[in-house]
Simulated scan of single mutants.
Amino acid sequence: MVSIHDLSYSREATVAAIRDYYRFLVSMYMDESNVLEPPAGGWPSIPPHGWANFGKTDEVMGLLRELPYLDQCSEPYQIHAAPYTVFADWQNTEENCDGQKLKKWTEPWPDEIQCEIPAHIVGLTAYNDPSPAILLDTELGVIYWYECSGKLEENDETEGVQGDPYAWEEDGLIPEDQVEWRGACGIWSIENFFKMLKEQFRKLNFVPIGPREVQDVWVGQADELKETQVAVQNIYRKHGWPDMARFNREACRAEVKLAIRPWQN
């Protein structure tokens, strides 16, 4: 396990980890055109000091300006970067947006967790049923998966963060009102979080159902949909997954498209 005291935050390393993760998804199932890279100087649509009522630090805003994003406005529907999970497309946000609405879109609401999410923490995902809240901490250098499935943590071979937020509060790392919601999270270093996601894809615990939808093997499915999920897993294995030296991405995508067509119509 990784000690929280041994971690640090780096904007450069965080951008690199997210970019590497999106490249991994493209190598497996996603269309390359869905990954949007920032122009030199960062996304001009993201204000350097944030939107009105957003209340995030300049470091958070600097990170959002430099990240690559998934194009969530492309047709026919939003793209999953993990099971049922829609990563926020911050660069597509209007300049005059209400920051409170943006936080409500990406974070557990204060009424839900009985406190405000701190200014140095930002949501990476659109938080709605079923897309989970996944948040990045630019002070501690960790990522929180709010109300993370126990099945995921049981099947995680990467190193999570040692200890728990109750100990962090005693050490003076976080205030008392921030303990409970963090205690409801799976917590990883930023680098290990994305390693963990990739590991679940390699095991096919995360199953891409076409180029935009991802399911996991733990959520109950109707018999017909479960059969499709198993068929897709078998197709990936047939085409060499997870051995990237053998994996035939295009042949796999074509066969998956045929396999999922009956229940999509």
Rank of each mutant, 00 (worst) to 15 (best):
A126R: 13
A126H: 14
A126G: 06
Y127H: 08
N128R: 10
N128Y: 13
N128S: 11
P130H: 09
P130F: 02
P130D: 05
S131W: 00
P132A: 08
P132V: 02
A133V: 06
A133M: 05
A133Q: 05
A133K: 02
A133F: 01
I134V: 08
L135G: 00
L135E: 04
L135S: 00
L136V: 11
L136G: 00
L136M: 13
L136P: 00
T138L: 06
T138N: 01
E139P: 00
E139L: 06
L140R: 03
G141P: 06
V142A: 03
V142H: 04
I143L: 10
Y144I: 04
Y144V: 04
W145N: 09
W145G: 03
W145Y: 15
Y146N: 06
Y146T: 01
E147Q: 15
E147N: 12
E147C: 07
E147T: 09
E147K: 15
C148R: 01
C148P: 00
C148S: 09
S149C: 08
S149P: 05
K151V: 08
K151C: 12
K151H: 15
E153K: 07
E153T: 14
E154Q: 14
E154W: 10
E154N: 12
E154I: 06
E154P: 03
N155D: 10
N155K: 07
N155V: 02
D156C: 15
E157G: 06
E157H: 07
T158P: 06
T158N: 12
E159H: 10
E159N: 12
Q162I: 03
Q162Y: 11
Q162W: 11
D164Q: 11
P165C: 12
Y166C: 06
A167T: 15
W168Y: 14
E170K: 14
D171E: 14
L173F: 13
L173C: 11
L173A: 12
I174G: 04
P175F: 13
P175L: 09
P175T: 14
E176Y: 10
E176L: 08
D177C: 09
D177R: 11
Q178L: 09
E180D: 15
R182V: 02
R182K: 10
G183N: 15
G183D: 12
C185A: 08
G186I: 07
I187W: 01
W188P: 01
W188Y: 13
W188A: 06
